[in-house]
Amino acid sequence: MDKRVATLAEAVRNIPDGASVMIGGFGNSGVPFGLVDALIDHGAKNLTIISNNAGAGDFGLGRLLKEGQVSKFVCSYPRSRGSVWFEKAYAAGEIALEIVPQGTLAERIRAAGAGLGGFLTPTGFGTRLAEGKETRVIDGKGYVFEAPLSADFALIRGEKGDRWGNLSYHGTARNFNPIMASAARHTIAEVRQLSEAPLDPESVVSPGIFVKSIVEYGVRP
């Protein structure tokens, strides 16, 4: 078994127009910038992007938006300082936005990866984000039904990886990466260091079974 891919371009070349793509990261931490740049060069369009933030500045997700490759964004917080390309596209009505509370976003992704049909959460009960959704009261507390969220591809970032796809992480760069790894039909991992030796199983956070392709990208943002 060998999931290693030689280049970032090769790793993303099968992502078609119209694909749904999860992209790991929170702010600039744990974002697979190498894979995002490769996706921009690859040029796939009409993408649905699932990611916590909508980029900041002219790089990463900001550049993907600037190039007009995204038709829908699913996220919790698209309004970080410098999220100018998203705000422009949104104000112009050029992009659809599905706003999801952050914990619900994480749990919907986790549910998809865990083979669950959804879950009941108190988050958002009685608010605008629960409108039109099934609700239930359990022991006097209101809950909202939330469906699982999967994707065609996930682009994630780890610290170290091996040819089996096992991953470890660094600091707060872990965030959405492990759950996204489990929730996409084809998960592509970028790692700062691709190890010849197998990772110590005790240090593995994402088991390689979730990962289809792995590529080294040594740059830390």
């Binding site: 919790s76 917080y77 698209p78 309004r79 998203f86 705000e87 949104y90 104000a91 936005l97 706003i99 999801v100 509370p101 952050q102 914990g103 619900t104 988050t123 958002g124 608010t127 984000l129």
Partner: peptide, 11 residues
């Protein structure tokens, strides 16, 4: 016109 941004507040 201003995109809403909920983050983790509701949770």
């Amino acid at each position: 016109k201003f995109p809403p941004a909920v983050g983790g507040a509701m949770d």
